[in-house]
Design a protein around this nucleic acid. Structure first.
Lengths: 178, 178
DNA sequence: CGTCAACCTGTCACGATGGACATGTCAACC
DNA sequence: GGTTGACATGTCCATCGTGACAGGTTGACG
């Protein structure tokens, strides 16, 4: 049921159409947190409207329908955000590959880890300037811009993986031949 | 199709039964990387046997069937590990919540972030001694024990999230009232 | 000898998901 | 006036995943 809550969370930022929401999922949200295509989003929005969590806020050209949160929707979002279940759903292909690095021949493992480290370095070079730009533009009287916290999370994530890959390379190389 | 590759990766460590594999998914693999229950694992193993990626290695008491990788299976695992698609599957409820922190009222967001920081600190207290113990027991002539790299990944992950949560709290508190 | 817990494999129904299919609108540019 | 690309919403189906249902075996302990 997390798609529902993802949509509630995005609509909490302000009204949006199914199309808008789909594009948001195409960005870093879908890349790091939760994926969804429009074929799931439109039916889910309709079900949420039936359940009274959202309403059609306004209709625009091309059949555009903008949805807005209801009070029930906001309550449900808050309930979900503050109540963490013991076990949450995780399904991350990248982390899975990291778990399985040791199933490769040492040479392959080394190449893979080097590739990961490089990839992280590249992403960091792309992300850090974006964050700096956001901060430079940011008026300290305004609330923190949406996405800034998530962006920082991404940066720290890549730094962690980068460090891990380098550490793993060292660790694999350090085996003393007997 | 990642379940298939997860199973291939685990079988690369040595033959195992569906039951063994199910228990592995109950541990940190399922917690951080990829979840799967026995009701998916058994049918998938049968399909993989049909496809020639694994074979029944030996049968034991209680109908136990131990599977082993074939050469085809090893080739497919290697192909998958070394070939990273542009877009990988991600579905992580915890990260989703982090993306949506800013949809909460400031007070709720603060409480949530404090909870996350605490949770990370607790997990780190649990994980770090485990890793130290692994290292202390480890004979440097032996290859790095399976799971050590993944464990290190977990530690660095929690450290990153912990740091992020504290940074976010500061950032949210730093808004200058106008 | 009985029973209990852990071992071990499976199926089924229902819901979630992704990719293909389907349809139409509007603005810009040639 | 025509074409193209972005906007916009939807359905359908095959596959994936989950939790419940189901059934049988073995070893240990009393």
């Amino acid at each position: 049921m997390s798609l529902r809550h993802a949509l509630l969370g995005l609509l909490a930022q302000g009204p949006a159409s199914g199309y808008d929401l789909t594009r948001t999922f195409d960005g870093s949200l879908g890349r790091y947190a939760w994926q969804a295509g429009h074929s799931r989003i439109y039916p889910e929005l309709n079900k949420m409207a039936d359940a009274g969590l959202v309403v059609v806020d306004e209709t625009g050209p091309r059949g555009r329908k903008t949805y807005a949160l209801t009070d029930d929707g906001r309550t449900e979002l808050r309930r979900w955000m503050l109540h963490w279940p013991e076990q949450t759903t995780v399904r991350d292909e990248t982390v899975l590959r990291m778990f399985l690095v040791q199933s490769l021949e040492p040479d392959d493992a080394r190449r893979l880890l080097e590739g990961i480290a490089e990839h992280c370095a590249r992403e960091l070079q792309r992300l850090r300037p974006l964050m700096d730009e956001l901060d430079a533009e940011h008026d300290p009287h305004e609330p923190v811009p949406f996405g800034r916290l998530a962006g920082e999370y991404g940066v720290r994530q890549y730094e962690a993986v980068h460090g891990w890959a380098l550490w793993s390379l060292e660790r694999l190389a350090a085996t003393v031949p007997s």
